[in-house]
């Protein structure tokens, strides 16, 4: 394991954007009230550059922070752990659309894990009621995250790459 997590200072500063965006929820980015899954935009380029172990650690940290913001009984940590590790395994991406596809898949994984927790917890109540709402959220997030990732994640990738060159391990 390397120490890019600590050395990569400016990258970590940009990390602050994730909780800020999660709190802000700019309405012009939303479709039917659903927002893109913000942490994926940051996690994808960061994990690609820093490898699976760092991706796993940062995924865990983001998950904990987002859980503390949303303060409910469900957790986003498992989804972000999987995504961080998986994105780290992929290595450099050649094409722009790959960012979009990966971000969409990451959003799908996180959304499904969250939805599963919701269903399990409300199993006795009436989970049928939750299906339309859950599917709307998952597909809304997949669409928006996949749409914006080729722009936002690539910008972040370039920013992290420059930062890595300035602060080599």
């Amino acid at each position: 394991m390397n120490f890019s997590l600590i050395k990569n200072n400016y990258s970590l500063l940009s990390f602050l954007l994730i909780p800020l965006l999660s709190l802000w929820n700019p309405i012009w980015f939303s479709v039917m009230g659903v927002q893109p899954y913000w942490p994926i935009f940051w996690l994808l380029p960061w994990s690609i550059l820093n490898g699976p172990i760092n991706g796993l650690i940062i995924g865990f940290i983001i998950g904990i922070i987002l859980d503390s913001i949303n303060n409910d009984i469900y957790t986003q940590v498992p989804g972000l752990l999987i995504c961080g590790f998986w994105f780290g395994k992929l290595g450099t991406l050649k094409y722009r659309y790959q960012y979009g596809l990966l971000a969409s898949l990451g959003s799908l994984i996180c959304g499904l894990i969250y939805f599963l927790q919701l269903i399990l917890n409300n199993y006795q109540k009436n989970p049928d009621w939750l299906f339309s709402f859950g599917l709307k959220n998952i597909f809304g997030q997949i669409l928006l995250t996949g749409l914006f990732a080729p722009v936002l994640s690539i910008c972040l990738y370039k920013f992290f790459s420059k930062n890595l060159k300035k602060n080599p391990f």
Partner: peptide
């Protein structure tokens, strides 16, 4: 000051 009315939360 912050609104999240359409998503999971």
């Amino acid at each position: 000051i912050s609104r999240n009315t359409g998503s999971w939360w």
